[in-house]
Design a binder for these strands. Structure first.
Lengths: 153, 153
DNA sequence: CCATATAGTCAAGCATCTTGACCATCTCGC
DNA sequence: GCGAGATGGTCAAGATGCTTGACTATATGG
């Protein structure tokens, strides 16, 4: 309360929600910037979330809808975009005439490899920032939180 | 690897970025739902971020722009919305003919009070979920991360 | 007093997500 | 079998939140 805050400022917010938002934003910003720098200009935050859930062997569209917490139409529009960019392709599901399988194209697989590398690089940078122990504690707490808030399965 | 994953699934993503995204989404979802349930129907995630940075005594618009990491036009549109809802008001800055001061209306202050209460409630729920120690470790790691990634000031 | 920087506004457009309506296919009870 | 309802996917329209570009008004410094 004594330091450099001018008379019009109060303390900046400092609660879990704010910190989580900050950290999430930092991650997404670094990741997307690195992906675009690596030549994947089509990359965006929203697409990143979806891509993380497509298995190498192909994933049914409805499975993606269940895992993301957004409407099926939103997933479809994201997939439309990724298909137009040539990152994924949609094939009929041999086991279900209604379903479609979403699968990476070679271009998508290349992006996936770069993504893995970038992910590790950012993690290393963060570990360098806050130390191995704190980073482990962070992951532990976040995993526990997820398990605690979504007790299904 | 043995359990219920069918042959088309691989492991779900489990890295900091994903976990952060999940936790952030959970927080925003719970907070916004509680705020709307408390009668603040105008509440949204984007507005929440902005509101957290408006001091009780009023804050200059340009200061908000600096603290949020978005364009000044985006801030302005958010403020337009909040002003139309009667949550904040804009007054000329007595010290600078160009500037404007953003200040809460009584309606905005009421929302702020409810927000504080809801914030504490969610925190308590989360602490109940993962334990006091893990929660403290989470906050510690997130603060350290912010300090490490934005070393200014 | 003019040049430049700063604070804010207006306008147009893009990306993401939503709801509602719809069609095709599968599954289950009879 | 077969019809009813559930499920997987698509089309269309619209809201929100953000962007860039162009502009006005005020402040500041040589």
């Amino acid at each position: 309360m004594v330091k450099g805050l001018d008379e019009k400022s109060e303390a900046l917010p400092d609660h879990v929600g704010w910190r989580l938002w900050q950290a999430n934003r930092a991650w997404q910003g670094e990741f997307a910037a690195a992906m675009r720098a690596a030549g994947h200009a089509w990359f965006s935050d929203a697409r990143a979330g979806l891509i993380g859930h497509i298995a190498r062997a192909g994933t049914r569209q409805v499975a993606l809808i269940e895992r993301m917490a957004i409407s099926k139409q939103a997933v479809q529009q994201l997939l439309d975009g990724l298909e137009a960019e040539g990152v994924v392709e949609r094939l009929p599901d041999p086991d279900d005439g209604r379903g479609k399988l979403v699968r990476y194209t070679p271009k998508g697989l290349a992006a996936l490899r770069d993504g893995d590398r970038i992910k590790r690089e950012i993690e290393q940078r963060w570990i360098g920032c806050i130390g191995q122990a704190r980073f482990a504690a962070l992951m532990d707490a976040l995993r526990a939180l997820d398990a605690g808030l979504h007790p299904e399965t």
